[in-house]
Simulated scan of single mutants.
Amino acid sequence: MPAPPAPGFRLYLLRHAKAGWALPGQKDFDRTLDHTGFAEAEMIAEMAADRDFAPELILSSPAVRCRQTAEAFRRAVGEDLNIRYSDALYTGAEDAYRDIIIGQSTAVASLLVVGHNPVIEEILREVLGEQAAAIPYGYPPGALAVIDFRERPQAGSLPPGKLVAWLDPECHVR
């Protein structure tokens, strides 16, 4: 049986793992993962590595909790993975995330975006349409969606994608 064709583009959407509440005087930006969050980030990263889910590039919000989640992923999947940080993934809305995804070089065939809710969930629902009903309880911290597209996203909007995998630290794998 022939192997299925390679996707035109693969998008990984990773919501940062569970973070602690801001301490008195601490900015939201500086919130760190709590003990559960560190464990979730490591678990999801290992599960992704076990399934050979390895993006060519990681784009992350510069918020501390996202950096920590991205680093766990890089350690598990490949130390040579390049992580870039974008302020728009911390401050931006759905259109900023969309523009960042669409704006990547055509040489990048797979991209991991590490960001925040509700925007991560909005992007997921945009590209999955009715398939998103398979994820009825929102986008939990630390969850990873793996989405394949037949063609590269181009200016304007993200094309419909197909959910290849959903890794959720709360119920391990769906």
Rank of each mutant, 00 (worst) to 15 (best):
A41K: 04
L144T: 10
A145M: 13
E79F: 15
L158T: 05
I101W: 04
R125F: 09
A39K: 13
E56V: 09
A109I: 11
F73D: 02
S105D: 15
P136L: 13
R51W: 13
G78R: 14
I120P: 00
D52I: 13
I101P: 01
A63C: 08
R150T: 12
V114H: 04
L89R: 01
L111H: 04
A93K: 08
V146T: 10
F38D: 06
Y85D: 00
A155M: 03
E56K: 08
E121H: 03
Q131F: 10
A88I: 02
P62M: 05
A45C: 06
A54G: 14
R152H: 11
G156D: 05
T69M: 11
E151S: 15
F149E: 03
L59D: 00
I44F: 04
P160A: 07
S86F: 09
I102M: 06
G115F: 06
T106Y: 06
Y90W: 00
D95Y: 10
T106P: 12
V119G: 00
A88Y: 00
V146K: 11
I58N: 07
S157G: 08
S86E: 11
P136K: 06
H116K: 00
M43C: 12
I102G: 02
A45M: 01
E46M: 12
T69R: 10
I123C: 03
C66Y: 07
R51L: 15
T106D: 14
T36V: 14
G129Y: 07
L112S: 03
A145K: 12
G161R: 09
G129R: 02
A54L: 15
F38H: 04
G92N: 02
V113N: 04
E151V: 12
M47S: 03
L89M: 02
A76D: 08
A70C: 07
G92R: 02
E126I: 06
P160W: 05
I44L: 15
E71S: 02
K162G: 03
L59R: 01
I44R: 07
A143S: 14
V77D: 00
L144Q: 09
I147P: 04
E121C: 02
G115W: 03
I100V: 05
G156R: 01
D99C: 06
I58K: 04
F38R: 08
M43Y: 14
D52F: 15
T106A: 14
A143P: 05
S105N: 06
A49E: 08
R150P: 12
I135V: 15
N117A: 04
A155T: 08
L158G: 09
Y85Q: 07
V108F: 13
Q154C: 08
G138N: 01
A63P: 02
V113G: 08
G37V: 06
G92K: 00
D80K: 12
I44K: 08
I102T: 11
F149M: 12
A76Y: 11
G37A: 07
N82W: 13
T36R: 13
Y97A: 00
E94L: 09
D87Q: 09
M47P: 00
A155N: 09
R75H: 11
P118V: 03
M47R: 14
I102P: 02
G142D: 08
N117Q: 13
R65Y: 11
R125V: 03
I135E: 06
G103N: 06
A76N: 12
D99E: 11
R65F: 12
Q131R: 11
R75A: 14
Y90G: 04
Q154H: 06
A54R: 15
L81M: 12
